[in-house]
Design a protein around this nucleic acid. Sequence first.
DNA 1: GCTTGCCTTGACGTGCGCGTCAAGGTTTAG
DNA 2: CTAAACCTTGACGCGCACGTCAAGGCAAGC
Lengths: 128, 128
Amino acid sequence: MRIGELAKRAGTTTRALRFYESQGLLDAQRTSNGYREYDEHDLRLVKEIQSLQAVGLSLEDTRPFVACLRAGHESGDSCPDSREVYRRKLAEVDACLERLNTVREFLLARLAFQDPCLVPEPKEFLCS
Amino acid sequence: MRIGELAKRAGTTTRALRFYESQGLLDAQRTSNGYREYDEHDLRLVKEIQSLQAVGLSLEDTRPFVACLRAGHESGDSCPDSREVYRRKLAEVDACLERLNTVREFLLARLAFQDPCLVPEPKEFLCS
DNA sequence: GCTTGCCTTGACGTGCGCGTCAAGGTTTAG
DNA sequence: CTAAACCTTGACGCGCACGTCAAGGCAAGC
């Protein structure tokens, strides 16, 4: 299938697919006229990337999963590097949850007119 | 005081202060040589902005608070517009907490080898 | 032949809150 | 007189995952 069909079947855009390729996450055969040609395996890769992005992983973080699938494993998260990404992300999420709960308490207190309440420290506020 | 001292006392940079001014959040008197001149009230404004940023509000969201202080109120969050921002932010935080808990469950399940588990829908993932 | 709808590469735009030069003017200390 | 340490405006950079043109090639239907 060509890039347009892959995009449609994966529910994304051709621009995103070309971007993945530019980042080395995806590669494609070329037909004689220079068009990219994909198969079901590529569709699988794209879907893997999307589901990982859905849990807030960056494209960079998806590399181990893609490599794992390319290495022949049936699931992208059965390799050590992938599992390490999961663990790191879990720690980030936990930190973010804690942080957001503090913020939530702050907002509730302010809305309740309880004036002098602790302002959470800036820290990293990246909840992704 | 001049911009360097204000920056030091507020724990920020001159660049940030000039940026706030460019966004209409701060304004300054000018001395004869063109230097910006600030007073304690300006320091109060900057600190207000910083504490709001610390809870994840955007600069845009700080406008009502600044306006409230400028209007003569002793606290920036005693005006209706400010409180509305708090409420909206609280709703965002709640949505984000829910979302992150889903993601957390997903990660735990994957790490526990429980394979086919629900992938959270992409949605907005902006936890700020 | 002409239009339509695919495809190609390349390059710049987006949001947000500044950081980081660049090129210069002003004030103070020595 | 000079150097240091302030100040000014202006413009470009950053991260991240693409969106959005621009300018053109290729294939198929009328």
